[in-house]
Simulated scan of single mutants.
Amino acid sequence: MMIHVRRAEISDAAQLQRVFASTGTYSGTLQLPHPSLEMWQERLEKTDPKDTRLVAIYDGVVVGSASLHLEKAQRRQHVASLGMGVADAFSGRGVGSALLTELLHISDNWLNVLRVELTVFCDNAAAIHLYRKFGFDMEGTMRAHAFRNGEFVDSYAMARLHPRQAMVPTQKQT
């Protein structure tokens, strides 16, 4: 399967709406069911130029999306948060790996980001496996982090330090 990754464009709104309307996609993210086309058009139109939003294309169709959002606070400008979603029919077929490969290449080599962080639902074993494969470490559990399908669910906080900077000293515990 040949996947092409490129920057998201406003014209991708309808296809992104379809991706995030997938039950597994909105259940695995903080999105709501039945996203509107208008919401996706506005989201793409108002993307901060400092952020990076990519789409994965298979056979001319958007099958996934991932983004890096750079922190605005001066003391956290070395940090970006990551969000990602893959259409249900393409889960487990390399879309997430293709998106993460490109996002982390940009993060490591062009944006001078030291730390990429994310949250993932504790029951999303496939995503956790993918993030671990790309060097993300578990940093903690956030209890009752989100409301999903009628109940509160826990999430893990995960992060990855730039591979060449991973030796940054950690604060001593007292």
Rank of each mutant, 00 (worst) to 15 (best):
residue 3 I to T: 04
residue 5 V to G: 06
residue 7 R to P: 09
residue 8 A to T: 00
residue 9 E to F: 06
residue 13 A to C: 04
residue 14 A to V: 06
residue 15 Q to P: 00
residue 17 Q to S: 11
residue 17 Q to G: 09
residue 21 A to D: 06
residue 22 S to K: 01
residue 22 S to N: 01
residue 23 T to G: 09
residue 28 G to I: 03
residue 28 G to W: 04
residue 28 G to T: 02
residue 29 T to S: 14
residue 32 L to Y: 14
residue 32 L to D: 10
residue 34 H to P: 00
residue 36 S to R: 08
residue 39 M to R: 04
residue 40 W to R: 06
residue 43 R to T: 12
residue 44 L to T: 06
residue 44 L to C: 01
residue 45 E to L: 14
residue 46 K to P: 00
residue 48 D to W: 09
residue 48 D to L: 03
residue 55 V to Y: 00
residue 55 V to K: 01
residue 60 G to Q: 08
residue 61 V to E: 06
residue 64 G to K: 05
residue 65 S to W: 12
residue 66 A to W: 06
residue 66 A to F: 01
residue 66 A to C: 12
residue 67 S to C: 07
residue 69 H to P: 06
residue 69 H to T: 15
residue 71 E to S: 14
residue 72 K to R: 08
residue 74 Q to T: 15
residue 75 R to V: 07
residue 76 R to W: 11
residue 78 H to W: 05
residue 78 H to K: 02
residue 78 H to E: 08
residue 78 H to S: 05
residue 81 S to H: 07
residue 84 M to F: 00
residue 88 D to L: 06
residue 92 G to D: 09
residue 95 V to P: 03
residue 97 S to A: 07
residue 97 S to R: 11
residue 102 E to T: 06
residue 105 H to G: 14
residue 106 I to W: 01
residue 108 D to N: 02
residue 109 N to Q: 11
residue 111 L to G: 07
residue 115 R to N: 08
residue 117 E to D: 11
residue 120 V to Y: 04
residue 123 D to Q: 10
residue 127 A to D: 02
residue 128 I to V: 13
residue 129 H to I: 09
residue 133 K to P: 04
residue 133 K to I: 02
residue 133 K to N: 03
residue 135 G to M: 14
residue 135 G to Q: 08
residue 138 M to P: 05
residue 138 M to Y: 15
residue 139 E to Q: 09
residue 140 G to N: 07
residue 141 T to C: 08
residue 142 M to L: 05
residue 143 R to C: 11
residue 143 R to K: 13
residue 143 R to S: 13
residue 143 R to L: 12
residue 147 F to L: 10
residue 151 E to L: 09
residue 151 E to C: 09
residue 151 E to D: 10
residue 154 D to W: 03
residue 155 S to F: 04
residue 156 Y to I: 01
residue 156 Y to P: 04
residue 158 M to D: 01
residue 159 A to H: 04
residue 160 R to Q: 12
residue 164 R to V: 12
residue 166 A to G: 14
residue 166 A to H: 12
residue 166 A to Y: 09
residue 171 Q to V: 13
residue 172 K to P: 10
residue 173 Q to R: 14
residue 174 T to V: 06
